[in-house]
Design a protein around this nucleic acid. Structure first.
Lengths: 334, 334
DNA sequence: CACCGGACTGACACCGGTGTCATTGGTTAG
DNA sequence: CTAACCAATGACACCGGTGTCAGTCCGGTG
């Protein structure tokens, strides 16, 4: 910057004014400075200014998701990015892989980088350790999973009700023996979905104890194996509810492998690419991850703009899309 | 930091030493400082130090891809992230949407944030404007598409040969009238794929002029419409080669809609989720985007570590996975 | 013609750290 | 016993900017 000032024959502060488009700089001076900068290939150092600036905003937000490679997270990421881009804000995204140890490390990393806001999916049961950070002024917005031990804006899918809808849909098609296949039981979403599902079954007079329930399925392979074992068992269910996208895919594989895709009903939570092109099409509860990302980013910016209202809980509805697999009726009427 | 130093009763520099784990600090002092920091909830400001530090590394890299929501880009992103995490480096990812105007803006944004390295997918025909930045010390690594007008490490898929493989595969199954459906013709990848494909056909005595070739298909919808029109035309091809993942999906839809999925052969470039579960399974040239991301990040760090060798061109092989759709034979022998 | 307010501009301290170098006190070799 | 050396520590300038404030120049006023 000194070089630019020297070349343009002006003071440092004037160069700063030009680049920050502050008023009260003559057109001629602006011209000279821009010219000099161009010649020297100069660019403002965004972070240096932040040290002194009072609002202390680095125009950076951090995003912590399951994995940037997961379609759900990727869509959230894009939603956040699109809103952030409109505010000249860059996004650090980091994958958590549902590892509680990573959680602390990554959050700490992000805070060291002084992100203005943190949009995060958490794994740990309790987020109270973030209260101090929140009080210091870092904006926190939770996505996909509600936090505990801390009050902050949260954007989630309507897990409980949607899962109930899936259960009722299967019940309406005559199923009585429906299995639940879910993600890590410690996750908030997994709990909500399971309880929404079980509650709806209970309302129909089906005891939760009798519902085959398998949890802690982290990937396709594990899900396929678990579903396979279930299908091969003596008490084979007539319908499956898979509460996460990778689990759904695993279930599809297991069903195909046994040529049962036309006999066992399946409803998956979270839409899956090409689900409508399969035979049968896969009935899903479609979430709107892009929208979730957008809303979370909007909340973050609202807070940064000074919104001091009560923390909000935004619930994004997810709708059941019947495509065939969820409308299969049980072979032998129970 | 002043507060911590005061509370611990030591000098500023000592606090700095503790947090940077520099040698020659007594255990007792370390203890006191860490204690004070804990109590004050203090954290190093990563960027402040960078101003003075000589190596001037912000431990940040920028990644520019088509869209973080596209499965290909998302996998690249994850590959980059995993390598970066091992080096305590954060990743800024930004979506380009194949918009040349965005390209300049985003790159400029990233450079203003002083990223140590930039891993980028470019849209513009020429990248010579980046030479100045490169000379200044910013590491550039191109992914997916080779740059022109600049020499830098580049990691790409073996587009030309793989496309030729697809062509030969279809020829071997008796096809003579094969259509090419591609992405934006201006893109380097699109050009490579098209020319690899056409060259292989030419080698078999099929004139490129007679090959139905449709380009500039940016999304599923456009691809489905284009494929539909082609299928409805008088000169319906017996096989399709779709040179990008969204185009492949569009083609699948168009074929299904006309119940032609068992009659018209299809090979797609880039694997697609659930492709093996469809009827028929979709034969694809599977890329390894995760690997591409990894390699790109490794090159970037190698350069940051001082590697001054000639720019490398790394070609990641992509293999043909036969799943059914590519092995369909033409109905009427030509 | 002296006075005043507003447009421009630059000097300077300071943001939160780190590199450099000098200082201190205790050990060890000669 | 003294010189030499090393571990431990802090003072201070400086990194690349920005906020503050004071100074200069001008046209407009009374």
């Amino acid at each position: 910057m000194r070089d630019v000032a020297a070349l343009a024959g002006v003071g440092l502060k004037t160069v700063s004014r030009v680049f920050n488009e502050e008023p009260n700089v003559s057109a001629a001076t602006v011209e000279r400075v821009r010219d000099a900068a161009q010649r020297l290939d100069y660019r403002l150092n965004l972070y240096a200014g932040d040290l002194k600036r009072t609002d202390r905003r680095a125009r950076t937000i951090g995003l912590i998701v399951g994995s940037v490679a997961n379609p759900f997270s990727a869509a959230v990421n894009r939603g956040v990015e699109d809103v952030a881009a409109g505010r000249s804000t860059a996004v650090f995204a980091s994958s958590l892989d549902e590892d509680p140890n990573q959680e602390t490390r990554i959050i700490s990393e992000m805070l060291g980088r002084r992100v203005d806001a943190l949009i995060l999916t958490t794994v740990k049961r309790n987020q109270s350790h973030l209260v101090k950070e929140q009080e210091r002024g870092t904006v926190l917005v939770f996505v996909d999973r509600a936090p505990s031990g801390i009050a902050a804006d949260t954007v989630v899918t309507d897990n409980f009700n949607a899962s109930g809808t899936a259960a009722r849909h299967l019940l309406a098609h005559g199923h009585r023996r429906i299995a639940y296949l879910g993600d890590d039981a410690q996750l908030w979403t997994a709990q909500e979905r399971k309880s929404g599902f079980h509650t709806a079954l209970a309302d129909a007079g089906i005891d939760a104890a009798g519902v085959p329930t398998i949890q802690d399925l982290h990937d396709e392979r594990a899900a396929a194996d678990a579903v396979g074992a279930l299908l091969d068992s003596a008490e084979r269910p007539t319908a499956l509810f898979t509460a996460q996208n990778l689990v759904t895919i695993g279930a599809i594989r297991a069903l195909r492998q046994r040529s049962l895709q036309h006999e066992i009903a399946l409803i998956g939570f979270d839409d899956v690419s090409l689900a409508d092109m399969l035979e049968p099409g896969i009935t899903v509860l479609a979430q709107d991850p892009y929208r979730i990302g957008q809303l979370a980013a909007e909340r973050a910016f609202a807070r940064l703009d000074g919104d001091r209202s009560e923390p909000q809980l935004l619930v994004v509805p997810s709708g059941l899309i019947p495509r065939g697999s969820g409308e299969i009726r049980p072979k032998t009427a129970s």
